[in-house]
Design a protein around this nucleic acid. Structure first.
Lengths: 104, 104
DNA sequence: CGGACACATAAGCACGGACTTATGCGATTT
DNA sequence: AAATCGCATAAGTCCGTGCTTATGTGTCCG
């Protein structure tokens, strides 16, 4: 189940912090670590979870692995959210119109 | 932290099933149970988690408690998603325009 | 008024998941 | 070629969390 993946992946605050950092600009695993007080294996494991949730994708560059945000995961979240657009508050009701394009 | 709440709440497949059921129509806790193979206390605990995440809200009716989808939670998810609209695939890029209304 | 009902809460348990230390594997450097 | 570096994986530990059984609280009905 795909939904299980991205919700579970983002349920962890550390992984959300990693994701936010990558959203500000792609970087490798070591660069992600500094300023985060997290061990190297822990970072590697978090990235594996984010990867399997399609929230992040890797690109090998020599002995470095560059990570960046994967739009696929965000699209999956948007699709999940779109299923419940009937309940969205009026403030963002205008979204309904546009999301019709997404469905087909 | 609010994000922590709704992501963690939806990370559990049983709670997502409950939420989907409520999205199809509001009902009380007992009605939610049948066809779900879940004990009464478990359902009550799940509903408490969904409630604190603002994904669901209750409305007491006599000795029954009617539950329904709370738009606030969905709005919070939409807001979170909006932060990363720079990475959305082209297919739903049109959303960017509309989401500007949501930010302000 | 007393019992049944709908639901919430308490307490205990078992399992998953996030961490640790240790090690493996490619790639680069000297 | 050997050492080092960047990262992944293995194995073990600890804690959060989802379940259970038991009980509490409030509401309806006979």
């Amino acid at each position: 189940m795909v939904e299980n993946d991205f919700f579970r992946a983002l349920a962890d605050p550390t992984r959300r912090a990693i994701f936010e950092k990558l959203a500000a600009g792609s970087m490798n695993a070591s660069a992600l670590r500094d300023g985060m007080d997290i061990s190297q294996p822990a970072m590697s494991q978090h990235l594996a979870v984010l990867r399997s949730a399609k929230l992040v994708r890797e690109e090998r560059q020599g002995r470095f692995v560059n990570y960046e945000v994967d739009p696929d995961g965000l699209a999956l979240i948007a699709q999940w959210l779109a299923k419940y657009r009937a309940y969205w508050p009026e403030r963002i009701a205008a979204l309904k119109v546009l999301l019709k394009d997404m469905d087909q």
